[in-house]
């Protein structure tokens, strides 16, 4: 059986809020290492990969591999019934029909119990190779969100160009063009504003802004975001969570006509 207790419901609320417009039904794969999810959007352009390691939970117990097939819309409805600070416990049997959620207020004076009916989901699973990326950019997640939102007002796509010490986000639209450049920046006083660009070779790739704006819904999960790029491979956008857990998005690049 599965029993996983989260100190703060907000983590799961934010994860589901961040991915539910991209994927609708997905399996939460539970085993003794934690709870994982991999799902592609309908157009096969973007992929969500979530890993909540067992250390994220306290306690965490899962004796067997259990796949919880959940409709994310339903999941969100139930998670909205939890306060952000509530303690959240997920429970399921070994061959479950439902997943149970228990929300406890931090003062322990209220306990809410919900069940969500599970679905059989036959999901395509992609093998994602370990990639040595040519460029890895770490930047404030809010900054990345702003850039994507601003440029999406002008254009459907953005070119991300990484070169030594600088990354440039460039768009060309009907009403005009836009470009935002960021350079390596490190401050002891405000480390949350740091920008770090690691580069082994220059990279320039074009991506759909609609998807990037969608990924940025995860900004509340982490103060920083990591963008990993190599020429002619999908972009990795990673939000690191506590205990080596993560929420990752992959986006296929656009190719020239």
């Amino acid at each position: 059986m599965l029993e996983a207790r989260l100190e703060q419901a907000s983590i799961l609320k934010k994860v589901v809020d961040a991915i539910k417009d991209l994927v609708q039904d997905c399996n939460f794969d539970c085993n003794d290492s934690g709870i994982a999810l991999q799902a592609m959007d309908n157009s096969h352009v973007a992929l969500v990969s979530m890993m909540l390691k067992s250390d994220t939970f306290s306690p965490f117990r899962c004796d067997r591999n259990i796949a919880l097939g959940i409709n994310l819309n339903s999941f969100q409805k139930v998670l909205r019934c939890a306060q952000n600070e509530d303690i959240l416990t997920l429970k399921a049997d070994d061959s479950p029909d439902v997943v149970s959620l228990v929300f406890e207020s931090s003062e322990q004076d209220r306990i809410s119990e919900y069940d969500i009916k599970l679905m059989d989901i036959d999901q395509e699973h992609l093998g994602i190779p370990d990639t040595e990326y040519a460029a890895t950019i770490t930047m404030p997640s809010g900054e990345f969100q702003r850039i994507c939102r601003d440029l999406s007002a002008l254009s459907e796509s953005v070119a991300i160009e990484a070169e030594k010490n600088a990354v440039k986000f460039v768009c060309n639209g009907d009403i005009g063009n836009g470009a935002i450049s960021l350079r390596n920046h490190s401050s002891v006083e405000k480390p949350e504003q740091n920008v770090n660009i690691e580069l082994s070779e220059p990279v320039a790739l074009t991506f759909s802004l609609k998807y990037l704006v969608n990924f940025c819904k995860a900004s509340g999960l982490s103060g920083s975001v990591k963008l990993c790029l190599s020429n002619e491979v999908p972009l990795l956008v990673e939000y690191e969570l506590a205990s080596n857990s993560y929420l990752r998005f992959y986006l296929a690049p656009k190719i020239g006509d």
Binding site: L126, G127, A252, I255, D257
Partner: peptide, 14 residues
């Protein structure tokens, strides 16, 4: 307009 690739061109099905 650039054409959007498909992820399964990069990642193999398991």
């Amino acid at each position: 307009t650039p054409i959007q690739n498909d992820l399964s061109e990069f990642f193999s099905m398991v």
